[in-house]
């Protein structure tokens, strides 16, 4: 039997007895970032494919949420910082090895791009919009001419942002639960799925709703596949990762994860979406609302459980 005690007394605030440095702000920031990335991804993708007319909500309307989501997310990140006055230090250096660093830079690029996208589509929301100044009108015409280039840039950056929301965690080898590169694609898929849910909620067009229900079904399938792989990887790995997985397999995070994330946030909405595609009349809001709730809880569970997992020595 082995017993390990800190005999000098150590009770560093937020470190002991268990790491608790990140609270609601970081998972919320990652959820909003993933959702924004997903919405931009679909808008850019269907523009590149020339399907703006078929999927007007995804391309022209849902992206109006993105600047708000990103700003809310950045606000959450800002609230999380303990040395707020030095916030600008993030932007005096480029540190490619630091996920936090390149996440900050990605947001710096994608936030203005999301404003550009809204500006290009503003007449969908306000048909009588007038830019007033000639140079703004010229600028709009210029951007509109290059909308495909802008779409490609947004597509790429939205993927980077979506993957980043997972890599922020997976880069920490100190927390065995986070230290799996599957989190990148998993959070990207989850972000895309929450974005599809938002489009389903906002769309008034049955064809578009069914298309996104089909997309979401596929994304949920991929997510479940990645989750199974994540656990297979943990259980076939070192003791610390087996311990990390056991937080979800009988440990304190078992119910939140399997009930709220997997069952209510993935499997059940997938069933509802499937039935809707098959022609059953379903209340439009339930499935996407569950997907959004599942995505949010998923990030909270991973953020908190990760801090509970550690190396022992």
């Amino acid at each position: 039997m082995r017993e390990e005690l800190i005999v000098s007394g150590r009770m560093n605030h937020l470190i002991d007895p268990q790491l608790n440095i990140w609270h609601w702000q970081i998972p919320l920031y990652l959820f909003l970032g993933g959702l924004a990335a997903g919405i931009l991804f679909f808008a850019a993708l269907f523009t590149i494919l020339g399907k703006e007319k078929e999927y007007p909500t995804a391309v022209r309307i849902a992206p109006f949420l993105v600047p708000f989501l990103l700003i809310l997310g950045l606000l959450a990140l800002f609230i999380d910082l303990n040395h707020k006055l030095y916030f600008w230090r993030l932007y005096t250096i480029i540190r490619l090895q630091s996920p936090m660093g390149w996440g900050a830079w990605t947001l710096m690029i994608i936030t203005p791009l999301s404003f550009v996208w809204c500006a290009l589509n503003i007449k969908t929301i306000f048909p009588n919009w007038n830019w007033k100044y000639n140079w703004l009108i010229d600028l709009e015409a210029f951007l509109r001419k290059h909308v495909i280039v802008i779409s490609w840039i947004i597509l790429i950056y939205s993927l980077i942002l979506g993957v980043y929301t997972g890599i922020l965690f997976s880069a920490f080898n100190a927390r065995p639960l986070w230290n799996t590169s599957i989190l990148g694609p998993l959070f990207l898929t989850s972000g895309l799925s929450t974005a599809a849910a938002v489009v389903i909620m906002m769309s008034k067009n049955i064809h578009e709703r069914h298309k996104f229900a089909r997309i979401d079904l596929m994304l949920i399938g991929i997510e479940l596949f990645l989750i199974v792989h994540m656990f297979m990887g943990f259980l076939a790995s070192a003791q610390v990762q087996i311990d990390a997985a056991s937080l979800f397999l009988g440990g304190p995070y078992t119910t939140p994860f399997w009930l709220f994330v997997v069952t209510l946030g993935l499997a059940f909405p997938a069933l509802l979406e499937f039935l809707e595609i098959k022609g059953f009349k379903m209340p439009v809001f339930i499935a996407p609302a569950l997907v959004l709730m599942g995505g949010l809880i998923f990030r909270f569970v991973i953020a908190y459980a990760g801090q509970a997992s550690r190396w022992l020595y």
């Binding site: 303990n82 993030l90 936090m100 080898n173």
Partner: peptide
């Protein structure tokens, strides 16, 4: 200290929990 923004990334990254805010 005057470059640190207090994001906590380093705290989460240390396998020995050697840092504190």
């Amino acid at each position: 200290p005057n470059k640190c923004i207090g994001c906590g990334a380093c705290i989460a990254s240390c396998p020995y929990d050697a840092r504190y805010p």
